Simulated assay, not measured.
Amino acid sequence: MDHTVPYLCPSCGTNRSRFNLIEQVVQAVKKDPQTGSIVEYISDHDPLQFTYQGEKYRVQCGVCGLIDAEELFIRNAQRQKDI
Score class of each variant (00 low, 15 high):
M1C: 08
M1G: 15
D2A: 08
D2W: 03
V5H: 03
Y7S: 01
Y7I: 05
Y7L: 10
L8N: 01
C9S: 03
C9A: 06
S11Q: 12
S11M: 04
S11W: 00
C12P: 04
G13H: 07
G13N: 12
T14R: 13
N15S: 08
N15G: 06
R16S: 14
R16L: 00
S17K: 14
F19L: 02
F19M: 02
N20E: 11
L21A: 02
L21G: 00
I22G: 01
I22K: 06
V25K: 12
V25P: 01
V25D: 08
V25E: 12
V26K: 09
Q27K: 15
Q27C: 09
A28Y: 09
A28L: 01
A28K: 05
A28M: 00
V29A: 05
V29K: 12
K30N: 05
K30R: 14
K30E: 14
K31Q: 10
K31C: 09
P33M: 02
P33F: 02
P33Y: 02
P33G: 04
Q34M: 09
T35K: 13
G36K: 07
G36H: 12
S37Q: 14
I38L: 04
I38D: 06
I38V: 15
V39I: 15
V39H: 06
V39E: 14
V39S: 15
V39P: 04
E40A: 14
E40F: 07
Y41H: 13
I42K: 06
I42N: 06
D44N: 15
H45F: 12
H45Q: 07
D46V: 08
D46T: 10
P47N: 07
L48F: 11
L48H: 13
L48T: 13
L48Q: 10
Q49R: 13
F50M: 07
F50W: 00
F50S: 06
T51G: 08
Y52L: 06
Q53L: 10
G54F: 01
E55C: 04
E55A: 11
K56A: 10
Y57E: 04
R58M: 14
V59S: 05
V59A: 03
Q60P: 01
Q60T: 04
V63I: 10
V63G: 00
C64G: 01
C64K: 00
G65F: 01
L66T: 09
I67M: 07
D68Q: 05
A69I: 02
E70F: 07
E70H: 13
E71Q: 13
E71S: 11
L72C: 04
F73C: 02
F73T: 03
R75F: 06
N76T: 13
N76K: 10
A77I: 09
Q78R: 13
Q78H: 11
Q78K: 10
Q78S: 09
R79F: 07
R79I: 07
R79H: 08
K81S: 11
K81P: 01
D82C: 05
D82T: 13
I83V: 09
I83H: 11
